[in-house]
Design a protein around this nucleic acid. Structure first.
Length: 568
RNA sequence: CGGGGUGUAGCUCAGCCUGGUAGAGCACCACGUUCGGGACGUGGGGGUCGUUGGUUCAAAUCCAGUCACCCCGACCA
């Protein structure tokens, strides 16, 4: 491709709308342009990268035995009503009506459509297992799109759906997809980690996420190599810490704490740390309110709280009236002493002594509180978000926390969809068997952003070679004044292409500095510079995007180097 | 949806407080000089100042509404 014919405009200034580096670089390098919030046009340079991702994904999906299909992006409401998700998926669904006033949505995912296909097409267990996939545009009406293509509303997704006769088959299909995903992310050249995850609105049982490690990631990852444990912090578990609760050193005392409705205010007023306090959260339950007790500096985890028997789903904080009735006080002063509703304590509370709690009375707290003396020694449960240093569930080590970008998510759905949509096959005995499903997603567009987050420097993008829009950029110096350089460059351009390489030929009549700056910004792995002075010695200047400096090489050696590196 | 911020040329921004009819750098076009790390000169094209309404002799500027974009939050005591 000739630069002058490629329609590429790079920006010298960073657009003010971009916050994170991948978004900034994608705009500066001309990969994408924004149409509206969360909607992007993929320009020629960006599309080349996207296509490279898609190709690798397709190759590995095909290798794993999955079958490619394309389903409609627009889906009828009836299918979503069958599974109950027309209402449940709610806010993320972009709904529309056609001219006959029939309801449709722009698909955010395709479980319903594929299950409809499966129940029509699959009759016999002999047709299983089968796995269908597609690479297609999805639309999710995100609450707040952000970070460019990282959380866009319209995005490219590879989604796959497996069908098996039973759970054992599903586990095998799931394992295959897990392995295919590992192969995909390894080929893409990204640093990633597989973590346990919550299955959220998709439903089902086991699920794992593939996280590209990056500080700008929206997700937290809790992990521990000694225990071979890794989980999204949303679901990361911890265990009770071994150790002895210190003996009481203070007497129980009820004190006045005006305007201390928050832990923050309380800590400031008493000049203590949040670790010395307990907070008592009142949540709605199936049979009246329930109290959840955490150390003051810890955060309640909604997913874990929902697993507590009796807690209303979804988790709802009790309103002022309920709190008044349960505690006898305005919100902000709840505490376990004298509280006559079910109380659940987090694991970490057990190790505390001489702590501060609300007194169930406005502007009053108890200080010097101790378990066994003032409050019954509690059975504890896992209630909160883990933090760095917490013991692992297995107990062999402590958790570390890292940030990650979710680029893949695999689920064992089981029969959630096949049951509600009545997708069955005849088994060996001629009986109807509800198919066991799995679903497997990869955020294709998000991968491009994630790759940049992980591979850039102050000059621009540094593409992992499998993702690079071009293998090599050919930079002639003073081509428009030197016939020697022009002829040699044109010949090289032809030769590199005939070797099967994707070549960007910077044929602009621009000064070298401009060309070098753009080459670095758009991040092409190999750079070959053609100059009069090099040609006299039969040499080219070679530099890899990751190299600190360039080196002169014999022409053929340079070509071999690029060829071997790019086509291996 | 709640809170905050920003809308002036393709990009980054100044001008607004104190109203008088729009600017800079980069980018773009032409010519000339330059030519191995984002050159320089001369000339040129490009903006109903997001939008609607109001105040005023006069509005980019003051007032009100509205739209768009960005950030923080949306159980977080």
């Amino acid at each position: 491709m000739r630069f002058t014919r490629f329609g590429l405009t790079t920006l010298r200034d960073t657009p003010s709308e971009a916050e994170i580096v991948s978004h900034q670089l994608m705009l500066k390098a001309g990969l994408i342009r924004r149409l509206a919030s969360g909607l992007f046009t993929w320009m020629p340079l960006g599309l080349r990268v996207l296509r490279k991702v898609e190709r690798i994904v397709r190759e590995e999906m095909d290798r794993a035995g999955a079958l490619e299909v394309v389903m409609p992006a627009v889906q009828p409401a009836e299918l979503w009503r069958e599974t109950g998700r027309w209402d449940k998926y709610g806010h993320l669904l972009l709904r529309m009506t056609d001219r006959h006033d029939r309801d449709f949505c722009f698909g955010p995912t395709h479980e319903e459509v594929i299950t409809d296909i499966a129940r029509r097409e699959l009759r016999s267990y002999k047709q299983l297992p089968v796995n269908f996939y597609q690479v297609q545009v999805k639309f999710r009406d995100e609450i707040r799109p952000r970070f460019g293509v990282m959380r866009a509303r319209e995005f490219m997704m590879k989604d796959a759906y497996s069908f098996d006769t039973d759970q054992a088959g599903l586990e095998e299909s799931y394992r295959k997809m897990h392995n295919a995903y590992v192969a995909i992310f390894e080929r893409l050249g990204l640093g990633f980690r597989v973590v346990d995850a919550d299955s959220g609105e998709i439903g089902g049982s086991r699920s794992q996420e593939f996280m590209v490690l990056a500080d700008s990631g929206e997700d937290g990852i809790a992990w521990c190599d000694e225990d071979n444990y890794a989980s999204n912090v949303e679901t990361a578990a911890t265990s009770p810490r071994e150790g002895i609760t210190p003996a009481p050193t203070r007497d129980l005392e009820k004190i006045s704490t005006p305007n201390c409705k928050t832990i923050e205010n309380l800590v400031a007023f008493l000049d203590i740390t949040a670790e010395q306090t307990l907070k008592t959260l009142i949540v709605d339950g199936d049979d009246g309110p329930i109290a959840l007790v955490l150390r003051g500096d810890h955060e309640l985890n909604a997913i874990k709280a929902d697993r507590i028997p009796g807690v209303a789903e979804p988790l709802t904080m009790a309103g002022p009236a309920t709190i008044q009735k349960a505690t006898g006080s305005v919100p902000g002063y709840a505490g376990p002493i004298g509280l006559d509703i079910p109380i659940f304590y987090d694991h970490a509370t057990a190790a505390m002594s001489d702590f501060v709690i609300g007194a169930n009375e406005a502007d009053m707290h108890y200080v010097g509180v101790n378990f066994g003396r003032d409050v019954d020694v509690p059975e504890t449960v896992d209630l909160r978000n883990v933090i760095e240093g917490d013991p692992t569930p297995g107990g062999k080590g402590t958790l570390k926390i890292a940030r990650g970008i979710e680029v893949g998510h695999i689920f064992q759905l089981g029969t959630v969809y096949s049951e509600s949509m009545n997708a069955t096959v005849q088994d060996k005995d001629g009986k109807d068997a509800t198919m066991a499903m799995g679903c497997y997603g990869i955020g294709v567009t998000r991968i491009v952003g994630a790759a940049i987050e992980q591979n850039h420097d102050e000059k621009g993008i540094i593409w992992p070679e499998p993702l690079a829009p071009f293998d090599v950029i050919l930079v002639p110096i003073n081509m428009h004044r030197s016939d020697t350089v022009r002829e040699a460059s044109e010949a090289l351009y032809e030769e590199l292409q005939s070797m099967g390489l994707d070549v960007l030929f910077d044929d602009r009549d621009a000064r070298p500095g401009v060309k070098f700056a753009d080459a670095e910004l758009i991040g092409i792995p190999h750079r070959l510079v053609v100059s009069e002075r090099g040609l006299e010695a039969g040499e080219l200047e070679y530099r890899h995007r990751r190299d600190d400096e360039s080196r002169m090489m014999k022409r053929d050696d340079a070509l071999d180097l690029v060829k071997d590196s790019s086509l291996s």
